[in-house]
Design a protein around this nucleic acid. Structure first.
Length: 659
DNA sequence: GAACGGCTCTTTTTT
DNA sequence: AGAGCCGTTC
């Protein structure tokens, strides 16, 4: 019989990596990158190279022979996932492109497409976005109110967006509707039964239409993962899981993460509890605290050296967050010395604030600073209006993030609705939208027609007989015959071309600015031409739509230099040399709508996220004497988060106009 | 009875 | 830009 001896494996080839990890990373980053198996939590403060660490870890795993498709990288937006992978590709090579991943929602979609059978999901489901979902809720709600006279006139019955928020929170926080109302919507504690009933009807409505909303994606993914066949298959597929922005995951995402990781639990969560800003979406910054407790052992890595900001900015932001009762105290220290203290600037009104910033940007341009290195950040979308006017006046090109997106404009949504019907004839939400475009057709007629669709008694052969009694029947017929002429086999851009021929009449009737809107549709067709299948186009439009606003959807390439205007939320993860945080006014940041201590603390973190975007210069400004309609108060105090900022941390100025 | 047009109000943040 | 309300029109 042969005798074996165990020979110690030679690990010295670890030094044969293509990438010199030791040299290119600091020791905290290096440790996280080299983390091998088992659960790990990486606490990486703002500007400490969190993305860099993830990029290097992906590369390192691949260099160690892990098949790239077995690495699952879950990120907060698809943009950040693309960015990470392209950076890792530059670092290593094309193998990186095979890494699996996306956002939780897009990953859920991919998985449900494969495993739909095991949870009894019809394959041809389509996705609806927030506003579609609210449309459906509104239909159900109106019907309910019409059937119950006592809600007709009197008091405030929750509107569609509140209903949507309640449902969404209940799913995302894994809590009952009743609990959510008792905890967060006390104004409606007397209507719990009614709300539950409406939300239940809404679910049925979606089921009949074969539609899934954002929350359903997560809920069904979790359901699928609870099937042991699915979860076994999944654990075979993905051996190493990395999750970014863990502080902004919610309870259901946490549960999904644990399921995905399976018994091996090669799960690395990365995040910073100081930057948790999505609690309105059910995000639970405590997830990051609970994370290690979900396992017997969990390695924790802290990365605290800040490479982004000059020291005075870091001192300022450290002070901002110092009073926050977050659990993991980090001490960020600066790698970059020099620079000036942040400016805190009082403007007498909004106009003056806009003019000042515009002037600063013009001066920066004179000094040779690239406009791409400048950002203006604000709490809420509508706070940018005056700035936009002023920037346009001075011919400063800008690109706006957050706010009304291309995909959310009425005409684009209309076009999408036609496409969805090609894919799914039972999509009642799209029928509602499309039929509503026809002149002479209102809610009553629509509900009669959709009822026929719902009963499966209407089709392309019999619509003329069934719908002949209606007023304006010819226009209804036109719509039907147009949709009938569309085929699933046509490419998305061809479909849109056909639709737009019919739609252009509607557009002209409905809008005074129809020319502008029909240009948008041309742009839409261009975007669609990069897709081969309707399904892929529609999925992307629901989960990964072009996220800048209408005007700058297509890079008007000759203008490659632009200032960024963004909500703080949309600025997450990004950085600029010069950052202007505007409207740092008590009542705007924190918003007057934030009341509880938790709300206020989240506003503080928002302030923190905004200021930590700055590399070299930070300007915090606020106008005073602003009348707030909601409260009836005049807002004239700077943000309370600036209260404890002493003169050695920031320099305060008042704008005075030169005479 | 159903749909329309014009008015005012209002705007946290997003997958 | 859009949503909701209300008086007017078909």
């Amino acid at each position: 019989m042969k005798k074996f001896i165990l020979k110690k494996r030679d690990n010295s080839n670890k030094n044969n990596y293509i990438i010199n990890y030791k040299k290119e990373l600091n020791s905290a980053q290096y440790d996280a990158v080299m983390h091998n198996t088992g659960p790990a939590l990486v606490l990486a403060g703002a500007g400490t190279g969190k993305t860099r660490t993830m990029v290097y870890r992906v590369a390192r795993l691949i260099e160690d022979g892990i098949a790239p498709e077995k690495i699952l990288l879950l990120t907060f937006t698809r943009k950040s996932s693309k960015e990470m992978l392209s950076r890792a590709t530059k670092l290593l090579d094309g193998r990186v492109n095979k890494v699996s991943g996306g956002t939780f929602h897009s990953f859920a979609l991919q998985t449900l497409k494969i495993f739909h059978k095991s949870i009894g999901l019809n394959q041809n489901f389509s996705l609806i976005d927030q506003s579609d979902s609210e449309d459906a809720l509104s239909i159900v709600r109106t019907e309910f109110i019409n059937n119950h006279n006592k809600y007709k006139k009197k008091k405030r019955f929750p509107n569609k967006s509140i209903l949507s928020a309640i449902r969404s929170k209940s799913i995302n926080k894994r809590d009952s509707i009743e609990q959510i109302i008792l905890n967060e919507y006390q104004a409606f504690t007397d209507e719990i039964i009614e709300i539950e009933w409406i939300l239940d009807e809404y679910s049925k409505y979606k089921n009949r239409s074969n539609l899934l909303d954002y929350d359903d994606l997560l809920l069904l993914l979790l359901k699928a993962l609870n099937d042991s066949n699915v979860s076994d298959e999944i654990s075979k597929r993905y051996k190493y899981i990395l999750i970014d922005e863990y502080q902004d995951t919610n309870r259901i995402q946490h549960e999904i993460s644990l399921k995905l990781a399976g018994r091996e639990a090669n799960l690395m969560a990365v995040g910073d509890d100081a930057q948790s800003i999505y609690s309105f979406r059910g995000a639970e910054h405590n997830n990051i605290i609970f994370f290690p407790k979900s396992f017997d052992t969990c390695t924790i890595y802290k990365i605290e050296e800040n490479f982004r900001s000059l020291e005075p900015i870091l001192k300022f932001t450290n002070k901002l967050i110092e009073e926050s009762p977050i659990s993991y105290k980090k001490r960020l220290f600066a790698n970059r010395e020099g620079g000036e203290k942040p400016y805190i600037i009082t403007a007498k009104d909004e106009r003056q604030q806009s003019e000042f910033i515009t002037q600063q940007i013009l001066e920066s341009r004179e000094e040779g600073i690239d406009l791409n290195e400048i950002a203006i950040l604000y709490r809420s979308n509508f706070l940018s209006i005056d700035l936009e006017i002023e920037l346009s006046k001075s011919n400063i090109p800008y690109k706006k993030y957050g706010g009304l997106k291309f995909i959310e404009t009425a005409h684009v949504k209309d076009m999408i609705a036609y496409l969805k019907l090609v894919n799914n004839f039972n999509d009642l939400i799209s029928w509602n939208r499309i039929l509503g475009l026809i002149k002479g057709i209102g809610p009553k007629t629509i509900s009669k027609i959709t009822e026929l669709v719902d009963k499966n008694s209407l089709n392309f052969n019999n619509y003329q007989q069934l719908l002949s009694e209606f007023r304006n029947k010819h226009r209804i017929f036109e719509t039907f015959s147009m949709i009938a002429s569309l085929s699933l086999n046509d490419k998305p851009d061809q479909l849109l071309e056909k639709i737009s021929i019919n739609y252009s009449d509607i557009l002209k009737e409905k809008y005074s600015d129809s020319e502008k809107r029909s240009k948008d549709i041309e742009i839409m067709i261009q975007i669609a031409s990069t897709y081969n299948t309707l399904d892929s186009f529609l999925s992307d439009m629901a989960l990964d739509p072009p996220n800048s606003s209408v005007e700058d959807i297509l890079p008007t390439d000759n203008e490659s230099e632009f200032v960024t205007l963004s909500t703080i939320h949309s600025a997450k993860g990004l950085e600029w040399k010069k950052v202007f945080l505007v409207w740092a006014l008590d009542g705007r940041l924190p918003s007057v709508r934030s009341n509880s201590i938790d709300d206020i603390e989240e506003e503080r973190r928002l302030f923190y996220v905004a200021s930590t975007r700055a590399k070299d210069d930070l300007f915090v400004s606020y106008p005073i004497n602003i009348f707030d309609r909601q409260t009836g108060f005049v807002l004239s105090k700077p943000s309370r988060f600036l209260d404890n900022i002493s003169e050695d941390l920031a320099a305060r100025f008042t704008l005075v106009e030169e005479v």
